[in-house]
Design a binder for these strands. Structure first.
Lengths: 212, 212
DNA sequence: AGACGTCGGGACGCAACCGTACCGTCGTTG
DNA sequence: CAACGACGGTACGGTTGCGTCCCGACGTCT
């Protein structure tokens, strides 16, 4: 038995990082241009100026490629986001999200993959991890801080809160794709802050009578 | 010149409505199953138990077919929706929307087409008409009624209102596709009502002092 | 310096789909 | 009753993409 260990790949026999990068970039662009449904490896290779083999050497299939790249792209950094008040936390969060969804690539790829997730369990699982779970974590922390500050009641439903915070901005930026102004963002922040509070937001205001 | 009028098609030489219906139904199912990107006429024909020719006789192209069917499906009825108060109007609206997006077909087709609209101007235009314009109209009326009742200030921004009303529910039902309960809907209604109001929602409450 | 072994690229077989041309069928019209 | 004429379906060429195989090129390790 030749248990002889092959020596490690070396020399020209090693993946060129520049090509891997070109493929990644081309995939994102192609994904934005035609969507996951029509995505073709050949088109990605063409756009990257690379042969199909270069892609198949690195990833097993179309799905593998997309999942890995999306994971890497989304697995970036999530800012600390603790500014001292619910309103300013939200304002910062909205600005970050607006900036992220402002990238044409993101605003085209994300809705496309989210739609595809409805029929592809693997994509669904990945997005669940890199997108929704992250949202829940961020919003959850944001809310618990607000509760500690006394800005929100402890009964605040984080489930509803996620939808209230994510929904409007996502609809506006990714679906309607309507231009928006700073004052829009401010109005939205104010609205969401009001939405999160309850009728008796601040306990000590609870007994303030409203003279009829 | 033979201006001779051809006699109108008759007998077997006339479109069979049952087949047109079958094509429509098959298109919706196929659209939900694979999305617009991967939609193929052959698959629609197969699913409908019909030949491709039967489709091409009725519509010029894939896009024509989709646009016409979507237009017909969405061009349905919009209820009167005037229940006497902002809260109950919203509650009814949410129930209607939740019911509509509850259909698996709708919750798969709509996000898919909305994503496709980002790259296909024709689809975008159609959805703008049958979806977003309708939303703006409904929300606009809902708000103006609330303003007349004194439930909302006249300065309410209908632009923000649409996002606040549509966004969370759309996110929840079409994107996250998380099961939801009646109490979730109620909480959401309450939150949105609060979001829409301003700090001085009801003028006569404006001077109610908050003792420090 | 020579051998090694994977690299990237071009080419191939296979499958699916588009849109069209053709062909026999069938019910109404005159 | 005979002719009309669009019907639905099959068959076809052309295109595109998938995944694989084979090739010369190339840089490091011995």
């Amino acid at each position: 038995m030749t248990t002889g260990k092959r020596r490690a790949p070396a020399g020209a026999a090693v993946l060129r990082g520049e090509i891997t990068t070109a493929i990644r970039r081309a995939l994102m662009q192609e994904l934005a241009a035609v969507g996951y449904g029509r995505l073709s490896i050949e088109a990605v290779a063409r756009r990257a100026g690379v042969s199909k083999t270069a892609i198949y050497r690195r990833w097993n299939s179309k799905l593998d490629l997309v999942l890995e790249v999306v994971n890497a792209a989304a697995g970036a950094r999530l800012p600390a986001l603790d500014t001292g008040s619910l309103r300013s936390d939200l304002a910062l969060l909205f600005q970050v999200v607006a900036h992220a969804l402002g990238h044409p690539l993101a605003s085209q790829i994300i809705p496309d993959l989210l739609a595809e997730a409805a029929r592809n369990p693997t994509i669904d699982e990945t997005l669940q991890q890199v997108l929704r779970a992250r949202q829940q974590e961020i919003v959850g922390r944001l809310i618990s801080r607000a509760v500690q500050r006394g800005e929100l009641p402890a009964t605040t439903d984080p489930d509803v809160a996620v939808d209230l915070i994510v929904g409007p901005l996502y609809w506006r930026l990714a679906i309607a794709r309507t231009p928006f102004t700073d004052s829009y963002l401010e109005t939205l922040v104010d609205s969401v802050v009001r939405a999160l509070g309850t009728a008796d937001t601040l306990p000590r205001q609870r007994e303030a009578p409203t003279p009829g």
